[in-house]
Design a binder for these strands. Structure first.
Length: 860
RNA sequence: GCGGACGUGGCGGAACUGGUAGACGCAACAGACUUAAAAUCUGUCGCCCGAAAGGGAGUGUGGGUUCGACUCCCACCGUCCGCACCA
């Protein structure tokens, strides 16, 4: 018996698929009555090589695509490249390679690696976001959104990454550090381009409720990120005239607790509040404080410590509900300009931050909410603010009300006084998309001294990146290019300059799924094709994009829909976030990481030890972590291809863990998958002669039932993204087929089992499945074969084993036909020999029969 | 601090809407084949008592609901993730 040889088999079937063009997408006309199904995995950044995490991601998508295709769907399963971004420029800076050639070379490498995985991808639809054809279309819709007022330019304090030398969006700052560089982010005041995502805040929030095939976790993260809150916008009139800068009559604050207004102690301003800035101009002390607070706020240590500081402005405001009541105005470092109005009223008794500030600067603390069951006369605030429910006290017209009633009453009062109105505030801020980098999509705008920013005319699109750029000095190569930015104003014809900022690469990935509907269309999106294919039925990718890519794409989809370019308002109907591929780590006595290929593992009892193969030195077995070059715990897909073939690798990455969880790569695990591949092949290699007589009807029926059960269970597993369970059922099924070899099962039943098996494994191990299919004498390809159906009658048992419990303890079991009525089951259970023995000396009080499940006898 | 998820054998993990806990795989052990090893095949395999038949407790800990709880409720312990001076 020859061993299965993936090195020979796998390439043979891949070239057959390619020759026959089986994965070319069918047009709606070609599809006939087949319903469409769009499967998409988050497209990769062309970093240089496909790693195991990529492989798991794309294999999952491929299983879905192949399964749906066999089930009769017209499947779209494309692939592209998220190809703009910093690493290409870093390669240029470090190694003198042009970003363009670095990127396209990586794409070529990774494309061929992906093809080795045997993915059912329509490669005719491939594109990279750095193709001028793609980013030119992006520029076109960008200008259309600009026409709708969704794109604007403003000066603001932005997150500046001092290592990557560029601005970052809020979503790209993690714990005060740049998401790519890891450098502490600084605050800078710059003029930037923004997309008005806040216009869509409410519908992005509402839309989440329709995404019932998204993980709750991701929806919750987006909900929190958007951060809707209801409250009151309220004006505190200034005491006396204030003439520095603009004409300011009062300070507008935002609060969610207007019920505590009578506990007000002071009004606080953010350091970059317009009034604070105006004051800083005339008052050097304030200027010095503001300057220092701003610097301090950007260091990680200061954020961690959370120390509250402030300075009194010398200004007072009056309480909105009492013109006689004067409150001091402070500037404080804990107030954020980007949220609400950048100004607050402070109620120290019922807000922890306000309390800390008030204690530090000796400001009044007036309790106005008495907790339930607490004597309001003895109630006092020490060093912890009370934020729970209760009754309002010391609050004049609000006295005696609950917190909820007080909220409504205070808002009504403020509105009747004309000093405020109920307001909804979001945490979400507009998306800053300017990047001071070369390798990105140029923002198609021309700055004219006379006309201001002018859109590049349609006929001049795309605005292409120049190839002749240098990276010898830091900063944006586009800005210092000798000629590129110099042009004439499309409006007045005078001399003008191009915008040298490029777009955040998350803009590139916010619409690529729509471009796949027709990647060569003249318009950015082929509306007719997009209407057919979108929304994406199943999107698959890492959870790390929960509030980045996935929020941006939802926003852009809605914006483009409002522009009439798209017919859907949600891009991804189904989302699946898959876990990572991890591996144990090993390090030597010197603390240096050692690659798994250089490690010898020994097991004795329950303890495991590791030694280094090359030197024999003992190693420390470390944590199980995401495969990464720095920890050297990487297994390259190529290594598996060389030793066990693609199919064994595909099988393993989906085997041992549920797909949403991390899977730990182990040598034993891949061996197990390889064994399975060989066990399957062994069943097909020596097929029995067709005239083998069957003389064991019982064994034959058992095999047929197992076949239909397997079809049912495996189909359900694939439908519900439970690949690990589906694989377990396939292992069981193969064990049963193998066991049936020893019995006299006729060729028809055996053939039925093997034909089903080949098709059931085909999404997972497609090369092996084709080989098995051919071995069965089938002339067509298994990728074109329909998914096997099961007969519900055959998939059900003809005899059930019901456990019989006495007082909840299992005491026996009975054999009954399915569907037998409760009375009959009861009789059989009560007459069972083991049951009778256990019931001796006690009386039966009650018998609970759960049909086809269990019998529980209550006795005593 | 706020929000969320999860705790099951030596390990990864099964268990549908409350109904036989430990499927399937890995590791381990024993045996067959082999001059030997690998590969392959067969068997055993959560814990305690027992030679076995059988019995006992058991899904992080403590309580509760139920004829019946890994599953539902309450409290606690632990791990992981997200947000974080959001007024």
């Amino acid at each position: 018996m020859a061993k299965y040889n993936p090195k020979e088999v796998e390439p043979r079937w891949r070239s057959r698929w390619e020759q026959d063009g089986v994965f070319r997408t069918r047009s709606p006309e070609e599809a006939g009555g087949r319903p469409k199904y769009y499967v998409l995995e988050m497209f990769p950044y062309p970093s240089g090589a496909i790693h195991m995490g990529h492989a798991r991601n794309y294999v999952m998508g491929d299983v879905v695509a192949r399964f749906k295709r066999a089930k009769g769907f017209n499947v779209l399963h494309p692939m592209g490249w998220d190809a703009f971004g910093m690493p290409a420029e870093n390669a240029a800076i470090e190694r003198g390679i042009h970003p363009k050639s670095w990127t396209y070379e990586n794409i070529a490498t990774m494309r061929s690696q992906l093809k080795l995985l045997g993915l059912s991808i329509d490669w005719e639809r491939e594109f990279a976001t750095c193709d001028p054809e793609y980013y030119g279309k992006q520029q076109k819709w960008f200008l259309e959104l600009m026409g709708r007022g969704l794109v604007y330019r403003k000066e603001s304090v932005v997150n500046w990454d001092p290592v990557d030398n560029t601005v970052l969006a809020n979503e790209q700052v993690v714990d005060g550090l740049g998401w790519r560089s890891g450098a502490p982010v600084e605050k800078r005041r710059l003029t930037q381009w923004f997309l008005r995502i806040t216009d869509y805040a409410d519908q992005l929030l509402e839309g989440l409720t329709t995404l019932d095939r998204w993980p709750d976790k991701v929806r919750l993260m987006q909900e929190n990120w958007i951060g809707k809150s209801q409250g009151l916008r309220l004006k505190f009139p200034l005491v006396g005239a204030f003439t520095t800068g603009a004409d300011i009559a009062g300070i507008e604050v935002y609060t969610t607790r207007p019920d505590t207004l009578f506990g007000a102690s002071f009004v606080g301003l953010a350091t970059d509040h317009p009034l604070a800035e105006a004051l800083a101009k005339s008052n050097p002390e304030i200027a010095a404080y503001v300057e220092e607070a701003r610097r301090g706020a950007s260091t990680e240590a200061a954020i961690e410590a959370g120390e509250k500081t402030g300075i009194f402005t010398g200004i007072y405001v009056t309480h909105p509900f009492d013109p006689e009541w004067k409150l001091p105005v402070w500037i404080a470092n804990f107030i954020l300009m980007g949220y609400g109005t950048g100004a607050i009223f402070a109620c120290p008794a019922h807000d922890q931050r306000d309390l800390e500030f008030a204690r530090k600067y000796g400001l009044p603390v007036l309790p106005v909410v008495a907790p339930p069951n607490v004597d309001s006369l003895t109630f006092n605030i020490e060093d912890e603010a009370y934020t729970g429910p209760g009754t309002l006290v010391n609050s004049r017209f609000l006295d005696g009300m609950t917190v909820e009633a007080g909220l409504t009453a205070a808002i009504a009062k403020a509105e009747s006084l004309g000093l405020g109105e109920g307001a909804t505030v979001y945490r979400l801020r507009d998306w800053g998309v300017s990047r001071q980098r070369y390798w990105g999509c140029p923002i198609p705008v021309i700055h004219c001294a006379k006309c201001g920013p002018v859109p590049v005319p349609d006929a001049d699109l795309p605005v292409q990146l120049p190839d002749d750029v240098t990276f010898d000095v830091p900063g944006n190569p586009l800005a210092r290019h000798p000629t590129w930015k110099h042009t004439s104003c499309p409006s007045c014809g005078g001399a003008a300059e191009r915008e040298t900022d490029t777009l955040d690469t998350f803009v590139d990935s916010s619409w690529y799924f729509a471009r796949f509907a027709n990647p060569h269309a003249e318009t950015p999106i082929d509306r007719e094709m997009a209407d057919y294919w979108l929304a994406v039925d199943q999107y698959i990718g890492g959870v790390e994009h929960a509030v980045l890519h996935l929020l941006y794409a939802r926003f852009i989809t809605r914006a483009l829909a409002d522009e009439g370019m798209l017919g859907v308002r949600e891009p991804f109907a189904g989302l699946f976030t898959q876990g990572m591929v991890t591996h144990e780590t090993y390090r030597g006595a010197d603390g240096k990481w050692v690659e798994p290929t250089d490690v010898d593992l020994k097991v004795s009892g329950t303890t495991r030890s590791a030694t280094r193969l090359s030197t024999g030195e003992p190693l420390v077995i470390g944590d199980i972590e995401k495969m990464s070059k720095s920890k050297k715990n990487v297994v390259a897909p190529q290594e598996i291809l060389d030793t066990h073939g693609v199919d064994a690798g595909r099988l393993f990455v989906l085997s041992d863990s549920p797909p949403e969880r991390d899977v730990q790569w182990t040598a034993g695990g891949i061996e197990g998958s390889w064994r399975f591949v060989n066990r399957v092949w062994a069943e097909f290699e020596d097929l029995p002669a067709d005239d083998d007589p069957a003389d064991d009807p019982a064994a034959e029926t058992a095999l047929r039932r197992a076949t239909h059960k397997a079809i049912k269970a495996v189909s359900e597993g694939f439908d519900n993204f439970r690949f690990n369970s589906a694989i377990a059922r396939l292992y069981e099924f193969v064990n049963i087929i193998k066991a049936a070899d020893a019995t006299a099962v006729g060729p028809a039943a055996r053939r039925e089992a093997l034909s089903a098996l080949a098709r059931l494994i085909s999404p997972l191990v497609p090369h092996l499945a084709e080989e098995c299919w051919a071995q069965l004498g089938e002339t067509g390809l298994i990728v074109d074969a329909p998914w096997p159906d099961f007969d519900p009658a055959m998939a059900a048992d003809n005899e059930l084993v019901l456990p019989v419990q006495i007082n909840g303890k299992r005491r026996g079991e009975i054999r009954v036909p399915p569907g037998l009525d409760d009375g009959a089951v009861r009789e059989i259970a009560l007459s069972d020999e083991a049951v009778v023995r256990h019931l001796e000396g006690s009386t039966v009080r009650k018998v609970i029969v759960v049909k086809d499940r269990i019998v529980n006898i209550v006795a005593g």
